[in-house]
Amino acid sequence: MSTTPILIAGFGFRREATLASLEQALEQLCHQYGDIDRLAVTHAMRPLVESLGRQHCLEVVVVADDDLASMATLTRSAYSQQAKGTGSVAEAVALLAAGSGAQLLGPRIISADRKATAAVAKARATGVI
């Protein structure tokens, strides 16, 4: 029996980010890690990521903004720490959405226009193939 891990891409971004910013970040993640199963975002940043999810037929998991500070991240952004209470919004969101036992596959990536960040967490496998 083998199980299939679920890969969840978490996003963080600046107000001026566009759908193209997120699209480019997702493309980088797919190139590096393979197919992504779900997208994740905080409640406050939800609309743009939901648009991305619709374009790619991917479920979007929404996590509470207040939970970000509870997550240990690989990246330590001073701005993110001050604004959101975490070293990386993208990494924290991915971990929260992936649930207990999740692990980051690497540090966040930054979109080419530097307006969006994204990270991938591997959730515990939920199915048997």
Rank of each mutant, 00 (worst) to 15 (best):
V63Y: 06
D66G: 09
A118D: 02
L48P: 01
A40Y: 08
G87L: 00
G99T: 08
L96M: 04
S70F: 03
H56E: 03
T42Y: 10
L29A: 11
L105S: 03
I6A: 01
T3D: 04
L104K: 08
L22G: 06
V49I: 12
K84P: 00
A97Q: 04
A94P: 02
P107I: 03
Q81A: 09
A64D: 10
T117R: 01
A119M: 07
D67N: 13
H31P: 00
G12F: 09
F13T: 06
C30M: 15
D65W: 07
Y33V: 13
E59A: 11
T42L: 11
L68Y: 03
A9M: 12
R46D: 14
V60M: 05
G12T: 03
H31R: 14
K122Y: 01
P47E: 14
A44M: 13
E91P: 02
V89Y: 02
T3W: 01
S80N: 12
S51R: 15
L96S: 07
A83Y: 01
T4K: 15
A102H: 06
Q81K: 11
A9K: 13
V63F: 07
G10P: 05
L7W: 08
M71S: 04
S80F: 00
A94W: 05
Q55P: 00
C30T: 15
Q81P: 00
I8F: 10
L19G: 07
A125H: 05
V128M: 11
L74E: 08
A44V: 03
G85H: 02
G127A: 12
K84W: 14
G87C: 05
I129S: 06
E16K: 13
L26T: 04
L48K: 14
A64H: 08
G85S: 02
E59W: 02
A119S: 03
G127M: 05
A102L: 09
A69I: 10
T126P: 00
L52S: 11
A72Y: 04
A112F: 09
R54T: 07
T3M: 13
R46A: 15
A9V: 12
G10E: 03
R54V: 09
A64F: 00
T73Q: 10
R76P: 00
A112C: 11
L58H: 02
C57W: 11
A40P: 02
E16A: 12
C57Q: 15
G106K: 04
